[in-house]
Design a protein around this nucleic acid. Structure first.
Lengths: 261, 261
DNA sequence: AACCATCGGTTCAAATATCAAACCGAAGCA
DNA sequence: TGCTTCGGTTTGATATTTGAACCGATGGTT
């Protein structure tokens, strides 16, 4: 693997649960030699992507990420544009709404919004990346990726995360076909046993799928009437976000969505 | 220079003025071989720090920066906490307020706020990094850096950006001493001929200087009364931001600021 | 059509950075 | 006193990165 990727993967170790990491920890968790890790971390530090704090000289994400984010948002107002829609979706459904984007070969959460309706809710503060085969967002996204990526994902061993996780590539392949024909995806407890979720894909200017919008509910609340209530508002929200980003779904999906919403 | 830094320096080529860059351009501007640049850009792409768009496959900053920024803000609410103070400062002075932070060895702009008072204003949309010797922010920050960094900066050739840029290390060294004793810095046309600015340093929890807050005005408006009006509100804003970030100035500066504000 | 420049991307010896392990001084703890 | 862990540095064997040349495609010009 490339040096640069190794360095960047260090960044992924920082989470809300673990915002500060010492050198030895960093090396252990990244599976790197300490000397190598030190040099990589120093490079990241020089650029300001991480910074060292305190007498223990632990590392944390640095101010440079803010500068880059401001630049990105100025060019492609992704987050800012999507947030209100996300919150509206959460409020309308009474459940957790979240938005994930393809970053490299991973599907990563970008933003989420909670509803105040119920005292139990699906939390996803600390998720780093969503498995394609076990989440509605993952399935919705994968269904519209180039076939080569689909094959790659399905040819790797698929982890059985819960009792309900589907891990048969053939079954999943069939589901992807269904998703393409109906314009949305569903996962019943495939990622966390007591979470059901529904997701719709998001598209860019070229009609390429770049991520998914999803509503995740505590299983006990997800009955048939709830599911059919969520679907149209989810799809409308996905349409809105897609068009706000200057994107457009492929014609086939646009047609299905038009009927469904 | 390390591979990782080379890759990261690619990120610095993306600006508001040049948000999309093709492979050949990227290589030229970074001074890298095209093959090298390609691999580096691919690595950045794999992580999502940049993405390729359009039929020309040009690169631009990717969605991963948003994810990282969200994490950083959750841990250290830098930007969010400072923005309202920045805007208030701009309004109170009728000029452009901006905030810069040390990232690695560079001082880089993080956020800025404009005042609607005048139809001419100082714009800094596209600044990548501020020279230490020629800006008030740079001087204010440099004055409180470790001596080793001060020596490093002053031993390198200092560019004469305008007729008024001071480039004599000895003179600058003396100015830094003044800045330390008065708690603020000033630059009269040293960066852009018709811009005068005043800056105050910002400190972290450990009393280390991590950047500066500055008010930049069109020279013609910066008379003595304006200068002495700006100074106290600037210092109060710097105190506010520092304490909002959980930081505190070294005792000597705290005392001076207390009197000056 | 023929030409030419340039684009994104690839190839392969030669140069360079990475690795594992051992080491350093400092700090924390018996 | 000894034992462990920390951040950081050094070493020589080894794997990766590098740069020049190359490829096919694209888009003007003549």
């Amino acid at each position: 693997m490339g040096t640069v990727l190794k360095a960047l993967e260090l960044l992924d170790l920082f989470t809300r649960a673990q915002p500060l990491i010492g050198l030895s920890d960093l090396a252990r968790q990244a599976g790197l030699n300490k000397a190598t890790c030190y040099r990589l971390a120093t490079s990241l530090c020089d650029f300001g992507l991480v910074e060292q704090v305190g007498p223990a000289r632990e590392y944390r994400l640095g101010p440079a990420v803010l500068r880059l984010a401001a630049l990105r948002e100025a060019q492609v107002p992704t987050q800012e544009a999507a947030m209100p829609i996300l919150q509206t979706l959460a409020n309308a459904t009474g459940e957790t709404a979240h938005l994930s984007l393809m970053m490299g070969q991973h599907l990563r959460p970008l933003a989420h919004a909670y509803s105040a309706t119920h005292s139990t809710r699906v939390m996803l503060e600390d998720t780093e990346s969503f498995p394609f085969h076990a989440t509605s967002s993952g399935l919705a996204t994968l269904a519209f990726q180039p076939e080569s990526l689909q094959r790659l994902v399905l040819s790797q061993p698929l982890q059985k995360l819960t009792r309900l996780t589907e891990t048969d590539p053939l079954v999943i392949s069939a589901r992807l076909e269904t998703i393409r024909s109906q314009g949305w995806a569903e996962s019943r407890g495939g990622y966390e046993a007591d979470v059901h979720s529904i997701a719709a894909p998001l598209f860019d200017t070229f009609g390429h799928c770049i991520g998914a919008l999803s509503v995740a509910a505590v299983s006990s609340r997800m009955n048939d009437s709830q599911r059919s209530a969520i679907r149209p508002v989810l799809i409308r929200a996905a349409q809105e976000i897609t068009s706000l980003w200057g994107g457009s779904p492929p014609p086939a999906i646009a047609a299905i969505w038009h009927k469904a919403a």
